[in-house]
């Protein structure tokens, strides 16, 4: 087990290193170095920068040095939390992304929780009561959830929140809490806004997960080990949750790691529609306006999160499934 974890951590480190190079390549991708574009963008706004300042920055970023030195300087900064400057916003990238990343994590985690707490019981029920009315209804709703575009669901829920609960529309906070420091009230305010993106982002996933959970369960419930447990006199409910559900859940645990990045990808449109202060929209804008330090930083962070998530689910799976530890 210990060996297994060490090996996985080493693999994760190597992967992260490769990702950092990729992100650096992305930053370097636009023609010319970024100072040229920086100066150009300032000039287009009517400002001008003195030659000395440009020269100082050039040295600071190591732009006249070989490419690997530039990489080392950049990654050295990243490790200390300095991701460079955003050309478009004119502020350090770090100031832009941490809050938004936290919000994205919040939306992502809450929709994962939403998806799991809904899909697993429904999937288990559908499988153990195959072809019952509820099985058909959940199948139907599941496909509906897959078919409805997210932005439409977002609009419908916003309308419901507005007309039924009199809530202000969009965002994750009411205006009075927007810039307020963190407090319990602000947190409650966040929760009252969070449910819309949670449902919108989670619905398609719920539909998919119900189908997979149902199929996995159907594979397991007729297995001899379930029969053995039944023959031992275990009650039906305890049997189902102890044996087949445990085995049927394993495939999901291995996907926890990818859940977050795919949610952030799926969330971009929703975030734009709902005006959420999350990472998706600024990634989109950063890419459109070639704000490469910003885009590179986000790509890097999301990839690292994916690697960490995968590492986590690998370890979790190994803890839960003794068969994995063997290989």
């Amino acid at each position: 087990m210990f060996q297994f974890i060490v090996r996985r951590i080493l693999i994760a480190l190597v992967t992260i290193f490769a990702i950092s190079i990729m992100s650096f390549v992305i930053i370097q991708l636009p023609p010319g170095d970024f100072l040229t574009s920086y100066v150009a963008s300032l000039a287009s706004q009517g400002d001008s920068v003195s030659e000395q300042v440009v020269q100082a920055m050039r040295e600071n970023y190591g732009l006249d040095q070989p490419i690997y030195v530039q990489y080392l300087k950049w990654i050295g900064g990243v490790v200390q939390g300095d991701f460079g400057r955003s050309l478009e916003w004119g502020v350090p990238v770090a100031d832009l992304i941490w809050d938004r990343l936290a919000m994205s994590l919040m939306v992502g985690l809450s929709s994962v929780l939403f998806v799991w707490s809904l899909a697993i019981p429904i999937g288990v029920y559908s499988a153990t009561n195959q072809y019952s009315l509820i099985d058909y209804i959940s199948t139907f709703l599941g496909f509906l959830g897959l078919a409805i575009p997210n932005f439409m669901l977002a609009l419908v829920l916003m309308w419901i929140a507005f007309s039924a609960f009199g809530q202000d529309v969009g965002g994750l906070f009411s205006p009075e809490f927007q810039d307020a420091p963190w407090s319990f009230e602000k947190f409650i305010n966040l929760l009252s806004h969070l449910w819309i993106p949670m449902i919108v982002v989670g619905t398609a996933g719920t539909a998919g997960l119900i189908r997979t959970m149902r199929a996995n369960m159907l594979d397991e419930i007729n297995q001899p080990y379930v029969e053995t447990a039944r023959a031992k006199g275990l009650s039906e409910r305890r049997n189902i949750w102890k044996y087949p559900v445990r085995v049927a859940l394993n495939p999901f645990i291995s996907t926890v790691g990818y859940a977050l990045p795919s949610l952030i990808g799926g969330e971009i449109i929703v975030a734009v529609v709902l005006n959420l202060p999350t990472i998706g929209p600024i990634l989109l804008r950063g890419l459109l306006s070639q704000d490469m330090f910003l885009a590179g930083a986000i790509v890097l962070l999301l990839s690292v999160l994916t690697v960490l998530g995968t590492l986590l689910s690998d370890i979790l799976l190994a803890l839960l499934d003794p068969r994995i530890r063997m290989e």
């Binding site: 001899p224 006199g233 445990r246 003794p322």
Partner: peptide
């Protein structure tokens, strides 16, 4: 359920998979 195993126990046809894998 009290008769099962307590009074009548059963060994199934498939020894390979009659025990839980996890």
């Amino acid at each position: 359920r009290s008769i099962r195993w307590g009074e009548i126990a059963m060994i199934f046809q498939e020894p390979m998979t009659s025990l839980s894998p996890v």
